[in-house]
């Protein structure tokens, strides 16, 4: 039982981090209609900035700067590359973000080199006991922070002018424009929000008991893709549910690996993708994704 509760808690913590990333995917997708592959490098950027500054500014200061820098970086990508393109094929925008990701990742990896950087988070290796299970404080913090941020996010989405603009625009861009919604500003804010969430996710991805930030940290963003997709790419709630499913699936597949020997071992890495494919076969636009309206 301890094992199960440990695994479930860790799965939820993992899911919380994925949720922060997946929400970023969804917000950007709603605003700009693109699956942002540059998210991996934005995450790395946030982590890198925090790692560089935490000695000087302390963790909180570094976190703040990291969040702001990453948000600004995401906003800059929107302004420089995405906004100007206007209407192009979906692939083209997607591949463009891959190009941006390659550029940014190359530079960050060159700077990080072989280093494993600590982000100076205050939790260290300390643990707490929950339901008889030992769980790292950082993991609990991940769940708490994610719950707070995601609640804030949903409230903003529901009640602020920006949230209403986002939802209106993703329903019908032109009608939203006719209401006087400043689309450029809404999109810019969306990218910035996504960037900020990615920077926070970077903290929990690298906090103990994980090994600190290194050049491959950004890859984790790839696992949030299935989360965003299986929930439905234009549904924030779907992203949240998807992220939790992926986190739990992964943790359970790893924790009960010995019972899954038939799959060849090490199946936890691909479990998210298998779950995603199964769900997409059942619902081609994810759990809560809206059906595409086809127009001739």
């Amino acid at each position: 039982m301890t094992k199960l509760s440990e695994i479930v808690l860790n799965g939820l913590a993992l899911g919380s981090v994925y949720a922060l990333i997946a929400l970023g995917f969804v917000v950007i997708f709603k605003a700009s209609g693109v699956m942002n592959f540059a998210h991996a490098s934005l995450l790395l950027l946030g982590g890198y900035v925090i790692a560089q500054l935490h000695d000087e500014l302390g963790f909180a200061g570094a976190l703040l700067v990291g969040v702001v820098v990453t948000a600004a970086g995401a906003g800059l990508i929107e302004m420089l590359f995405i906004r100007g393109l206007g209407k192009v094929e979906l692939h083209v925008l997607t591949i463009l973000t891959i190009g941006i990701d390659i550029l940014l990742t190359t530079e960050l990896v060159r700077r990080i080199g072989s280093d494993k950087l600590s982000l100076g988070d205050p939790w260290g290796a300390k643990s707490v006991e929950v339901f008889g299970a030992n769980v790292a404080q950082a993991r609990i913090a991940a769940i708490v922070v994610a719950v707070v941020l995601i609640t804030l996010f949903f409230m903003a989405f529901r009640y602020t002018a920006w949230g209403l603009s986002m939802r209106a625009a993703s329903e019908d861009r032109e009608a939203a424009a006719l209401m006087g919604v400043r689309m450029k500003r809404v999109q810019l804010v969306a990218w910035c929000v996504a960037g900020a969430l990615a920077a926070v996710a970077a903290v929990f991805l690298t906090a103990s008991p994980t090994p600190g930030l290194d050049r491959t940290t950004g890859f984790v963003a790839l696992k949030a893709f299935p989360a965003a997709v299986l929930g439905g790419m234009d549904s924030a709630l779907g992203a949240l549910i998807g992220a939790m499913m992926i986190g739990l699936t992964e943790a359970l597949a790893a924790g009960y690996q010995s019972d899954l020997d038939a799959l060849g071992g090490g199946a936890s890495g691909i479990a998210p993708y298998v779950v995603m494919i199964l769900i997409l076969l059942w619902r081609p636009t994810g759990l809560l994704g809206s059906k595409e309206l086809s127009r001739v």
């Binding site: 860790n10 993992l14 008991p209 924790g255 890495g269």
Partner: peptide
């Protein structure tokens, strides 16, 4: 021998550790 395979890219070892511990 209690075996636990991990992907070379994995960074989160908590599940593997839980399995070892239990």
């Amino acid at each position: 021998l209690v075996e636990q395979k991990i992907k070379p890219t994995d960074a989160d070892m908590t599940a593997a550790i839980s399995a070892m511990k239990s």
